[in-house]
């Protein structure tokens, strides 16, 4: 199982580099450099990390093909590989609809999915033609994206809850090609989760995933009514606030993040391995926290010492 951590959410470059070095030395397999709406442009941060680390793979993404042309995406992945070696992977996804609308990119969800899946094919082919061994992942949640991901080298599912993960896997059961990399990208907080709601870093991240849940998924799990109120509040504020989080409730929100102790993480990882997962990217806020990477390094060493 490949362990990864998402960085470059709002940390400075110096902080990101320190965390990446720590992850690299501590045996974390991959650091993922998030992109828009994060402030810093991921491919350049990836270059800086490549200069300072030795063995970890470096993931760029989630990158939206709606914000960058396929040519630019192929160019930055190729330039990274040509300059720093074959250490890079790419995660594509439509991106945050609200954030993209703020910079003049506004499409229906259907068009966003279509554009992303068509870009996936072009980018994957062109990277391969350029002779690079970069894996292209698709970030997916709804059934259409999950199925489209089968054309990628792997998928990073935007789920946390084991029941929901199983539902997602059932969408592609018996269709997964050999060598396909099955991965998960849950908001993560490894530590004390007694009071989930008041821990804003994780409750806000979980709420963001819940609010953005695809219609098909929310219908399948009967979440529509609960999400309707929160979405209304979110639209009213234009950003995440505590009343949105409160309207969703602690128990519900915990289905949209991993929040638990190292021991609970151990159990969670065992369950994922049993389901066939080959990689996990611990999403924000874990990488943003001051000692978030250290906690993961320790958790990994204990996991494999077991």
């Amino acid at each position: 199982m490949r362990w990864g951590v998402a960085l470059n959410v709002r940390e400075t470059i110096t902080e990101t580099l320190q965390k990446a070095e720590h992850a690299d030395r501590g045996g974390i397999d991959q650091v993922w450099i998030t992109d828009f709406p994060a402030l810093r442009y991921a491919p350049t941060v990836a270059a800086a990390i490549a200069e300072r680390t030795k063995s970890c793979r470096i993931g760029v993404g989630l990158v939206s093909p709606l914000l960058y042309s396929s040519t630019q995406i192929v160019q930055f992945m190729s330039t990274l590989a040509d300059s720093y070696g074959e250490r890079f992977d790419l995660l594509l996804g439509p991106g945050d609809k609200l954030a993209l609308a703020r910079v003049g990119i506004s499409y229906s969800s259907k068009i966003m999915v279509e554009k992303t899946t068509s870009a996936l094919m072009e980018i994957k082919q062109r990277i391969s033609e350029a002779g690079h061994s970069c894996s292209v992942f698709l970030g997916a949640q709804g059934p259409v994206m999950i199925k489209a991901a089968l054309k990628a080298d792997g998928v990073l599912l935007n789920y946390s809850d084991l029941e929901m993960i199983e539902w997602a896997l059932n969408q592609i059961k018996n269709e997964i090609p050999a060598g396909f990399q099955l991965g998960l990208f849950p908001p993560t907080y490894v530590g004390d989760c007694q009071d989930f709601l008041s821990n804003e870093s994780i409750s806000y991240s979980a709420a963001m995933v819940a609010i953005g849940l695809s219609r098909v998924v929310s219908n399948s799990f009967g979440f529509q009514n609960r999400l309707q109120t929160a979405r209304g509040l979110m639209k009213e504020h234009g950003q995440m606030r505590m009343d949105v989080v409160n309207s969703l409730g602690s128990e519900f929100l915990q289905r949209f993040a991993f929040c638990g102790t190292s021991e609970q993480l151990h159990v969670y990882m065992k369950a994922l391995e049993k389901m066939g997962f080959t990689s996990i990217v611990f999403g924000p806020p874990q990488g943003i926290r001051q000692h978030g990477v250290e906690i993961l390094v320790n958790a990994k060493s204990i996991y494999y010492a077991d």
Partner: peptide, 16 residues
């Protein structure tokens, strides 16, 4: 435009 290395990665590499 659209040729060769990606400008911003090349700029970062040159700075680094």
């Amino acid at each position: 435009i659209a040729l060769g290395q990606e400008t911003f990665v090349l700029t970062a590499a040159t700075l680094l």
